[in-house]
């Protein structure tokens, strides 16, 4: 097998499957704000942006935030982990923002139930 064929095959693989992936940033925070015994619902959103040669804006990050808020319309979103990464292709790339968190649904003031628990002891 000639070197040209090998190089051509590798180039074809790179073009068709995407060259590489890289994580630019990963942030985790807000886990200390979760009360003990809280009922948490894991939520996850993702927004991406296809770019050929260059991207014109970074609105995909804002879209990810908006989707995260929409997934938890009434509760608080806590313990947010945000990952910004890029998948590189041939003359193009895809920016991705993936955000996970917990939707913390706070019930009505638990004073009555808490006092009932205390009284029953």
């Amino acid at each position: 097998m000639s070197p040209r064929v090998v190089i051509g095959f590798l180039a074809l693989c790179a073009v068709t499957s995407g060259c590489t992936h890289s994580v630019h940033q990963l942030s985790v925070g807000g886990l200390d704000d979760i009360p003990r015994g809280a009922r948490l619902q894991p939520i996850q959103v993702e927004a991406d942006q296809e770019a050929f040669l260059a991207a014109g804006d970074t609105d995909f990050a804002d879209q990810a935030l908006a989707r995260l808020s929409a997934k938890c319309p009434r509760g608080r979103v806590v313990g947010i982990e945000a990952r910004y990464s890029t998948s590189l292709g041939f003359l193009s790339y895809t920016n991705r923002m993936k955000i996970t968190g917990y939707c913390l649904r706070e019930e009505a003031p638990p004073a009555a139930s808490a006092s009932a628990q205390t009284a029953s002891r």
Partner: peptide
């Protein structure tokens, strides 16, 4: 066209806990 559009790069994003829906 390229000069009008610009080549945008996202450098960093950070976020803190999102408040309750009624507080947004």
């Amino acid at each position: 066209v390229l000069s009008c559009v610009g080549c945008a790069s996202l450098q960093s994003v950070s976020m803190t806990n999102i408040p309750r829906g009624a507080e947004r």
